[in-house]
């Protein structure tokens, strides 16, 4: 119990961010008209591509002779980029069509 409490104190910043972000995420989405659900899902999909930052960090730490880490890290960066670029471009294409209607 004591351990848990001290863990919470030690990581309170992160825990606060998690809690607040949960509320922000729910708030922000709550007002979306159903028309925009698909683009929204796609946009959110692109945003979690932020996982690529982790891939870059991991890749940036890999020793030059650690081929396993280099190969896996390389793959991770490629996949993360696919998620980010593909996600944003697809979302943009969907929204472009809404725009054309002069709304």
């Amino acid at each position: 119990m004591n351990e848990l409490l001290s863990w919470i104190t030690a990581h309170q910043q992160i825990i606060y961010i998690v809690v607040l972000m949960i509320f922000v995420g729910i708030e922000v989405i709550g007002r979306v008209p159903s028309v925009l659900h698909t683009p929204l899902m796609s946009g959110a999909n692109a945003i979690h591509g932020v996982v690529i930052i982790g891939a870059i960090i991991v890749m940036g730490k890999a020793e030059h002779d650690n081929y396993a880490a280099l190969i896996l890290g390389f793959l991770a960066v490629v996949l993360g980029t696919l998620n980010v670029v593909g996600g944003f471009v697809v979302t943009d294409r969907m929204l472009e069509m809404f725009k054309k209607k002069g709304r």
Partner: peptide, 18 residues
Amino acid sequence: NKVMLTGGILVGAAGTLL
């Protein structure tokens, strides 16, 4: 890393609601 945390949790929460 705060940006991964915010981005990830934001999508996690919003995605669950959606």
